[in-house]
Nucleic acid binder design. Structure first.
Lengths: 220, 220, 220, 220
DNA sequence: TATGAATGAGGTTTCATTCAT
DNA sequence: AATGAATGAAACCTCATTCAT
């Protein structure tokens, strides 16, 4: 992930030849993410991605073999950082299970639900059938990993005697559903209905979180 | 799906000139629904729709002005019957609110969640941004109406003192989310992961329903 | 190759629906042959083929799935008739072996060497490496069949005691080479050198034919 | 192919500034020859040529103005040495005309027929129409010169009363055709048919040579 | 009404060539 | 001299839509 350590010696000039790159893969992926999320896969023209990044159509093909390869890169690079962040959070937590759930879910909402990454979830959902390979990658690397995260948090509360259920798949699903649905709605119908916008969403989100926590907790 | 029943009266040689249509709009919409759900909007070719319905590509244009018009018809005709059914159910109900919820949600699951109509929800979600007009229609005629239905049921239970909350938008959302998500998963990742299939889904669905009912009910 | 015999019943009107075709596969193949021979495979644009036939680019794809499929059709349809003709000729022949050879070779020259089909031989030679499947077809259906034809004629003269050798592969090769080379030259260097043109070619061809016949015949 | 021999004199530190070229035109031409012969002109990418020679695409353009210029260089450099060799052979020959022919033709086969240069002949044939200028050069410098060579050899035998014909163009053509055809076949259909391979070709070649010599010689 | 041939805009992809370092 | 990023024209191919019968 980072350049090999050269042992304290100052790294010599990288001896770059030729014209320096105008863009990097990351920049292209960044703009592609925007457009894919905004217009969907089919309606996004590679030329628009390139122009958005300030290069020409052909340049894109120096970095990605095909439209599908670009799409795969968008998926791969989009979710990895957010997941690592969530995992760290669970590992460190002490205190009530309900508080951990609150932190996790509201954290997810802040870093994914309200950002382009939310749109990426919707995109993957919409295109999964057309790109089984990428869908499998997403399922394995993103969904499964995210579910394990939540499952561990529920188990934590269950082990402390606070939650009435353990973190099995069905429970995880029920816990995540309200937030995920809200994200999907935002990225589908926000343009159509005020009620799907996320603007004053914080209160709504808190409500959804408390709703599922109530379903998890033992009666007092 | 089939020709309208003429009530047992033998149809005499019809007075109107020309043959009756060999196909009706309904047949086309029916096959279009299948293909749209299976492949998504962009990947569905009108020629395939026509072939599936046993007519030629040109004939399709006698019934629908454009691909988008066909898509709109699919959406319109897909949801109307299911909604009417649900509304009748709520109007008639007597007894516990929880039982009404169970009936509504499991009824929704049977008639929509496990049928092509589930795929239609996913399709609309995926394409809403590309077809704001249709999305607005869907939102108005399907989503809003469906939400009112659920809201009324929650209010019913609330009025009886069984539910701790009234049927406002946020609650409706939280109640529907698990079932909707499951449908979306089925139509996206079923091909990729066993865990997204709906096969032994009945137990899972019951679990999801009880999960949200628990969140609705007052503590005992 | 021809419509199935309907047993003497007058064929009913074919009940053609829709717009009658502006072109047929044969017309497209015909123009494609011209352009492929003139410019080579890579330099021939499908749009030019279509325009030459008086239709649009898209129409071509109603008849052929791809450029390669068109190329295959050109090859298949180009050679079949000429071969059948030659085979009939050998079967009927009576008289001197040398005369049969003269007839075959000059017949080949007239029907292939001086027509577009000569260019087709050159095209196949030039493109064989790029299209192994089509090359295999050509080798099996055209070259092998043509070689058998010549071999039979040599065997005929050999059986009569006129030729000193039998029709094995090497002999066939040596017999055909001068005419084939001349065709290839014509279609490659004619534009560059008068000496490669075929205009007064008849005397040259007769010379080439007598040259190989002399090599075949026993000394007098 | 290798650096010019400097004659044993130790090259002192060269006075000229800058490094000597890391690659020479010859290296590029050498690899271009391989690729052109293997894949044909259109299917050969300049980038592959550069990579094969161990330089970058840009470097190639320091030596050649265009793909066509590279092609021209390949042609020019490919044939010149072989021709000089053949010409020397004819000039020195004493003895039977048939033996001279055997030596020339089998020499051609060894140095051209079985090497990449054979593929170069095929390439020129395939591309002549697309590059008239190069074709003219080839025709003038290679074909015409080669034909003169053969013509002189036939004349030699004719002057000695061994051959029944003089070395006119038609005869030269008939003499060369079998070997040329075999080369073309090898470079076109070898991948498709065992019978076009050159493996045990020596016997076949001898046969072809004797075949044409028989056609040249007077009856005994 | 129904057909199926025809269209052509629009997309992806390739690659010879240029250019700044 | 050498590089390698960048370009953009051009080709193939698709498919929603039109049209003549």
């Amino acid at each position: 992930m980072h350049a090999p350590d050269t042992g304290g010696n100052p790294m010599p000039a990288p001896a770059r030849r030729g014209r320096p790159a105008l863009v990097s893969q990351d920049v292209l992926v960044d703009h592609a993410l925007d457009l894919f999320v905004e217009k969907g896969y089919a309606a996004t023209r590679l030329e628009d991605v390139a122009l958005a990044a300030g290069v020409s159509k052909g340049t894109l093909y120096l970095y990605f073999d095909s439209k599908q390869a670009l799409f795969a890169a968008v998926m791969r690079q989009g979710f990895v950082p957010a997941l690592a962040d969530g995992e760290a959070r669970v590992a460190q937590h002490r205190g009530h299970g309900a508080d951990l759930m609150r932190e996790l879910l509201s954290g997810w909402w802040r870093t994914i639900g309200t950002t382009r990454l939310g749109g990426l979830h919707k995109l993957m959902l919409a295109e999964a059938r057309n790109f089984p390979d990428i869908a499998a990658l997403y399922h394995r690397e993103v969904m499964a990993r995210g579910c394990r995260l939540i499952a561990r948090a529920i188990d934590y509360g269950h082990a402390r005697g606070e939650f009435r259920v353990a973190g099995d798949a069905r429970t995880v699903h029920a816990v995540m559903a309200p937030l995920l649905m809200r994200v999907l709605m935002t990225h589908s119908f926000a343009c159509v209905s005020q009620s799907c916008r996320t603007e004053d969403g914080d209160a709504d989100i808190a409500f959804s979180i408390e709703f599922v926590i109530r379903a998890l907790e033992k009666n007092v």
